[in-house]
């Protein structure tokens, strides 16, 4: 069963994302949380992660630096990454995708928008 890593410096946002996924009917076995890109990187390589949701603006290591670091690490560098961030606009989306992100969702989002975005990577029960 899939394991999802949520990287966001807001514990409230991590909780909201987790609750929305659980209520959406998407199949997830376990959630792993990280408060910034650095912690996310450690957890991404030391856990059997199937999907990563990552904020952009975080202390210590930003989301975009996390994406570049994971994709360049040679370890677990094919795990799908969906950016979930207040950063909008075509330039940011292009920057994320060219750095290796597979999806992009702008905050605020509805549960339906989150489900639709993650439905590309997770099965529905």
């Amino acid at each position: 069963m899939p394991k999802v890593l949520i990287i966001d410096d807001s514990a409230v946002m991590r909780k909201i994302i987790q609750r929305n996924i659980q209520q959406s009917g998407l199949m997830v076995d376990e959630f792993v949380e990280a408060g910034d890109g650095r912690e996310g990187l450690e957890k991404a390589v030391s856990n059997n992660i199937d999907l990563i949701l990552c904020d952009w603006n975080m202390p210590n290591m930003t989301g975009i630096d996390f994406v570049r670091a994971l994709r360049g690490s040679g370890q677990k560098n094919t795990i799908p990454i969906v950016m979930v961030t207040t950063e909008g606009g075509e330039t940011k989306i292009e920057e994320a995708k060219s750095s290796g992100a597979n999806g992009y969702l702008t905050k605020p989002f509805t549960p339906e928008q989150l489900k639709s975005k993650l439905g590309n990577f997770l099965l529905v029960k």
Binding site: S10, N57, T85, T86, E87, G88, G89, K92, T106, K107, P108
Partner: peptide
């Protein structure tokens, strides 16, 4: 953050 982020875009 969400309000400012959208305005920033």
């Amino acid at each position: 953050n969400m309000i400012a982020g959208n305005v920033k875009t």
